[in-house]
């Protein structure tokens, strides 16, 4: 357990350093620091993956159960999704100023939570768990990416003195940032839908009903509906600009609440994944 925790602290340190570098690099328009920040974020993934691997071998299941594991899995996907995008298209790197703090808060929260390993309950012991969680992580990573680009868009747009416009000048043009935000939302919408669908099939397998309006199921639908509204206002009403970016910014925390907040706030048959006894 000690090795795992040490590795996880190293990963968190890497992500904190990356965040600081992004803030410094973007604020003072030092492109070199932004590039270093992407490297630091990428390097932070190495100890995190090692720590999760060690834990997986020890407890016999992936990062699916308990707040520590779930938040860890989400962080891994958020950072991996972002660094892959940043390596493929370095002009997106500056969006890390908004994305990495989310990763740091998630992993920081995980490090403060109980790290006890929870056994797979009979209800959770299914290959559907892997599929369901993988889609949830992918969707959240895409939503955080859209959130980061939304923040970058708003910062540039609202920069009356032009400072932030200069600081974020390496980002693609505003219309391209907007288009990319929408594409990340679309990707997240697809993955979130796949999460709901795989959950419904699994629920039918495990409980004999595919949908039961359980609070966690309902909130997953609410998030999907919110992003459906985003896509409709974008494609059918032709919303553009700052209000669309604000929409992407505001929607992401709701998806986070659906994933991590609902099992804490509500009594749910799904509570088991966050370590609640009633799940």
């Amino acid at each position: 357990m000690t090795t795992e925790i040490v590795l996880m602290w190293v990963a968190l340190t890497g992500f904190v350093v990356a965040t600081a570098m992004f803030v410094f690099g973007v604020t003072f328009a030092k492109e070199r620091f932004v590039r270093i920040a992407v490297i630091a974020a990428s390097l932070g993934l190495v100890p995190q993956i090692m720590a999760l691997g060690v834990r997986w071998a020890r407890v016999g299941h992936g990062p699916y159960i308990g707040y520590y594991e779930v938040a860890n899995g989400l962080t891994l996907f958020v950072v991996a999704f972002f660094v892959i995008a940043a390596w493929r298209n370095p002009r997106l790197s500056a969006a890390g100023i908004a994305i990495m703090p989310v990763a740091v808060l998630l992993l920081g929260g995980a490090m403060l939570a109980s790290k006890d390993s929870l056994p797979l309950t009979p209800n959770l012991a299914s290959y559907w768990l892997f599929i369901h969680v993988a889609f949830a992580n992918l969707a959240f990573a895409a939503f955080v990416a859209s959130f980061g680009l939304g923040v970058a868009y708003v910062l540039r747009k609202r920069s009356t003195s032009g400072k932030w416009a200069q600081r974020l000048q390496k980002l693609p043009a505003q219309d391209v940032v907007e288009e990319l935000t929408t594409r990340f939302v679309l990707a997240g919408f697809l993955f979130w839908g796949a999460m709901i669908a795989s959950g419904a099939i699994w629920a039918n397998q495990a409980w004999g009903r595919y949908w039961g309006w359980d609070p966690i199921e309902t909130w997953s639908l609410i998030v999907w509906v919110i992003y459906a509204v985003y896509l409709h206002v974008r494609f059918t009403l032709g919303w553009k600009g700052e209000r669309l970016a604000w929409f992407a910014i505001a929607a992401m925390p709701i998806s986070l609440f659906a994933l991590l907040g609902t099992p804490i706030v509500f009594n749910s048959i799904h509570g088991g994944y966050i370590g609640r006894a009633d799940g």
Binding site: W213, P215, T218, W219, L221, I222, V225, V229, T262, F266
Partner: peptide
């Protein structure tokens, strides 16, 4: 969406 939210 809003109705479902209230219902929870």
């Amino acid at each position: 969406g809003a109705w479902s939210m209230l219902a929870t």
